[in-house]
Design a protein around this nucleic acid. Sequence first.
DNA 1: CTAGGGTTAG
Length: 472
Amino acid sequence: MQLSSPEYLLRLLKHLINHQNEVRQIHSILLTKGHLLFDPNSPPLSIWKPTLLYNTLIRAHLNFGQNHKTLHLFTRMLAHNAPPNAHTFPSLIKAATFSLPPSGTSLHGQIVRRGVLCDSFIQTSLLSMYSQLGDLLNARKVFDEISRPRVVEYNAMLDAFSRNGDLGSAVLFINRMSNRDVVSWTSVISGFSRSGLFREAIQFFREMIVHADVTTGLVKPNEATYVSVLSSCANLNEGGAFGLGKQIHGYIIRNEEALTVSTGTALVDLYGKKGYLKDAMKLFDQMVVRGVCTWNAMIFSFADNGREIQALDMFEKMRREGFLPNGITLLAVLSACARAKLVQIGLELFQAMWSEFQVLPIMEHYGCVVDLLGKAGLLGEAVEFIKSMPFDPDASVWGALLGACKIQGAIELGNEVGFKLFNFQPQTCGQYVTLSHINAGLQRWGPAADVRKALKMSGIRKVPASSWIDPM
DNA sequence: CTAGGGTTAG
């Protein structure tokens, strides 16, 4: 086979699909050889080559996380007259989900016009896209158009309910499904967890492991399930929650060989949040492979337990080992600085965020700096800092200032800020719901009552004992 | 194996 033939280059591309430099080189060879150009006069067997090549390139760039480039490749594809097929769209839909401005609806239009809407992969991708964009209505519409949904399609709809906080519907839905797999169960557990309903998440996990799905061996909890329920255990301040977490830890040790990045991090977080820093650190050291998230969990553990200096040391160590801090890392170190009143270091880190770490500060970081200045008694500076923000502060930022006013006894400013906060109350700050660290206490109780009612109505029983998980 | 879809943390 010729080294510059489209067949060979396609094979090469598939083989090196996760290697950015190689993909780029193959891409440029393909361009110079004209292999990406659709030629109606080529032999019938190779007429689809440009489409295949473009689909693979699109997939590669999606994997690289280059959503904009992924979508741009589609316009190049159209310009080269390479006809998109049903395989083209799932990757594009995924890229559109996470790119700004949203281009999902225009993709939806393209799909309809090209008559590939009946493809089940495309339907699931679209459903999932609307779900991730918080558009439950359109997600539902897509689902209702699916003629014979199977478990994957059901799961996508289930996840749409779960991740958008409609857990009542999620529970009703999963109960009505004739087949459930581990993804179905995990979707609901993580949905509860995401909504801050940790007790319900744990309860649902307990339901899962005594359900016929699991006892018959049809379904088995996996890493995603454990991570979700461990996170709920970490966040629920009840003795039983920690106990369950430790049981799961034991179970993982007995059954899986080594801790993965996800389970290891979830466990570091668990022990850290419960104040068992030695155990958290021991786990951290045991882990063979760590991720940025692992470091984040460890830094947060120190920061939240009054060991701010150790948190900052950990941050230095992380950088020495070549890890690039992300937005969460910065949040962890900024909160450590705030707690220890290390104003200078905190401000320097905030300044370095963009210039050194290429992390764009978001609302939470600003909230952290306000907290930092406020805790140190620099209320005037905190107010100035809020005024300098490039976007409007939300309730979490004003809340940080209010907290500082209380500590400092600044009654007048406190009243002013309190009034501003009062105006925020009726709003649902939906997109910040996950930012529980700073938003703690805000927007938590609304959905909870409804969900408990739905749980009750859906006939979830009291939890019997299980062979390896004790009832709480 | 033979392009593409659903679940995971801080």
